[in-house]
Simulated assay, not measured.
Amino acid sequence: MQKKYDLIIVGGGVLGTFHAYHALELGLKVALIEKDLQPQSATVRNFGQVVPSGMNTKWQNYGRKSLSYYNRIQSQFDITVRNNGSIYFASNPEELQLLEELAQINKKNGYSSELLTKETCINNYPGLQSSYVLAGLYFPEELSVEPRTMIHRLLEYLQKEKGLDYIPSTTILHCTTLSHHVELQSASERAFYAEKVIICSGAEFKTLYPQIFQSSDLEVTKLQMLQTYPQSNYKLKGSILTGLSIRRYEAFKECISYNNIKAQEEPSSLAKKWGIHILFKQAMDGSIIIGDSHQYADASHMDNLGFDLHDEIENFMIEEAKKIFALPNYKIQNRWFGIYSQCKNQDVFEQTIDNNIHIVTGIGGKGMTGSAGYAKENIDKIYNQN
């Protein structure tokens, strides 16, 4: 028999990798198996914003715990974490009202935030259009990472410093419960053995347990994003979230005015049609990432989303972005889409098979922010640490 692990995790995205981190912290012998050479899906196709402020109170707590884990790891190994805060810009009185209400919720929750005047926002964020902004809500504790780099650095850290066995380019086709362990069979007919297995498969629903996923409430979301060329002599700090984000993010649903304000929105707008809200984040090379849009399909029909990038979406996002920031240039060097899975009626998809096989996926857009905190709770639950 090959080497036997305490835990094997299938899926090397941010959710699976933070499960590995917390299991290693318990002293367990852990392997992480990834179907590709390196993670290629939602974990690397996003903004790299770690923003608990955008989540409801439950998930904000997970996100705040995630901040501490990111900072702890960064103090030991560079995983590209930057402590540069995030800000929401209100463009009209309704959005300002929501910011003021969220500030009070955060005060009650003990989460640091600061309302900024229009003048302060303009002074602190070069190129911000005075015709757009009324005020801002700033979160000084929030982080950003480089999404195409962070997960690779985190995996490197876990291998070098924590003893993780990382097994890439390996597709697991079967998990079988035996008398005292679980056997995993790969497409290359290699066998792996563990006491427990956690499957963090993201939006990969066709290989392991397809019947479970097809009958679930899981859906997939396709997000379209852009990246400019590096901006000469221009610095934009932190994560920038704008009026359309205020109207989308879960945190604002806890505001007393939210439902009334949402009811007044124009239902036929392109923002509604494509689920667009405008975000900005400057990458370390000086380029600006702009996005994003949201298209949805049930897990069983995810292929219907296709692989095309829509000019209509791109053009709308650029025109809206120009209303918010006068960047030195809006010349686009990269365009891409990401796909993540989420649940329609619950926070995350969890199912246990034969006691020792745990499926955990469908964390949606909460992954980069919430995974580290949520994974700690889940590992503790699986290993009776509570």
Rank of each mutant, 00 (worst) to 15 (best):
L115M: 15
T170F: 10
Y234C: 06
P147I: 06
W59P: 00
C121M: 11
G306E: 14
I79T: 07
I33V: 15
G370R: 03
Y70T: 08
I353M: 06
K262S: 13
F77K: 08
G54S: 11
G16D: 10
Q104L: 15
F18C: 13
N83D: 05
F280I: 07
Y132V: 09
S41A: 13
F337V: 07
Q385G: 07
G127P: 07
N355V: 08
A135D: 08
N109H: 12
E114M: 12
N92W: 05
G63E: 11
L154M: 15
E195F: 00
L115F: 04
G275C: 00
S53H: 03
T43F: 05
Y374V: 06
L158P: 00
Y296W: 10
A203R: 00
Y340A: 03
L99S: 07
H174F: 10
I278P: 01
F325G: 06
G367P: 08
I379E: 09
I198V: 15
Y111S: 06
K35I: 12
E101S: 02
Y193C: 00
D347C: 01
K237Y: 03
L32F: 09
Y383V: 11
I167T: 07
Y330W: 13
G365R: 12
Y21S: 06
G202F: 01
L173C: 10
K162E: 11
D292H: 12
D308P: 07
L134W: 00
G338F: 00
V51D: 07
N106P: 02
K108M: 08
M317Y: 01
T120Q: 12
G306Y: 01
I198S: 02
F307M: 13
S75Y: 01
W336I: 04
A263Q: 13
L223C: 12
W59H: 08
M368H: 02
Q351V: 08
N123M: 02
T242H: 02
T176L: 13
P93E: 13
H180Q: 14
V220R: 01
S341F: 05
G367R: 12
E319Q: 14
I288N: 09
L143G: 05
Q224A: 08
S216G: 13
I198R: 03
H358Y: 15
I318D: 11
N56P: 05
T352G: 01
N83L: 09
A42S: 15
I332W: 05
P230Q: 13
G362W: 10
I240L: 15
I276P: 01
S75T: 11
E266K: 07
L115A: 02
N315D: 14
Y157H: 14
Q76T: 07
A251L: 09
N345R: 06
K206S: 12
L67G: 06
